[in-house]
């Protein structure tokens, strides 16, 4: 059985993945390590790569794109992984933020927060392409009338999200990447 270690930018990603992943993959064990923001992640993840002494471990780094250039972020992380002798580490970027993935599945946000008709925003031209929403966290708070809570809502979304029908490209690329490692 493969063991996956997720190096994450913050608690909300952990809350999502801990509930979502067991629904998608039954034949893995995994551990989520939340850092305190992206500078903590970038500055300290190498210690985990080097010190994590459990055999058959694959690492996955997930961070938000925010306003940075996706390729620059990726190359920078990649370099550090190679230096730490873990070149096969999977690096994935949530474009722009974790909340973009929730815009890709507004039906689940609707259920979790018990707001009717939230999903009609997915045809709104401002939100139709989740990965190009500029400030998804702020926008999600706005359309949910501040009901969205980063950690607790992420946990509940993870429990029910239809991962086969998410319109966020970066979410699908993340899941495909995991499938490649696992299967």
């Amino acid at each position: 059985m493969k063991h996956l270690v997720f190096l994450l930018e913050e608690e909300s990603a952990k809350a999502l993945l801990e509930n979502l992943l067991p629904r998608i993959f039954q034949n893995i064990t995994f551990k989520c390590i939340p850092f305190e923001g992206k500078s903590d992640l970038e500055g300290n993840f190498v210690k985990k790569l080097k010190g994590y002494n459990v055999p058959n471990t694959f690492f996955v780094i997930l961070r938000d794109q925010d306003s940075a250039d996706c390729y620059v972020i990726k190359n920078n992380l990649k370099e550090k992984c190679v230096d730490a002798s873990k070149p096969d580490t999977l690096i994935r970027i949530a474009c722009q933020e974790l909340e973009s993935w929730y815009f890709g599945s507004l039906v689940s946000v609707e259920k979790v927060l018990n707001i009717s008709n939230l999903s009609h925003y997915s045809i709104d031209k401002r939100y139709r392409i989740p990965d190009s929403i500029v400030n998804p966290k702020q926008e999600l708070k706005k359309i949910t009338n501040q009901k969205y809570r980063q950690v607790s809502s992420s946990r509940e979304i993870g429990n029910i999200m239809d991962y086969r029908n998410n319109t966020s490209k970066s979410f699908n690329v993340f899941i495909e990447g995991l499938k490649r490692i696992i299967e």
């Binding site: 210690k47 985990k48 080097k50 010190g51 994590y52 002494n53 459990v54």
Partner: peptide, 9 residues
């Protein structure tokens, strides 16, 4: 695991 990570700083 904890001991190993501490060794890495």
């Amino acid at each position: 695991l904890i001991a190993s990570l501490i060794r890495e700083g």
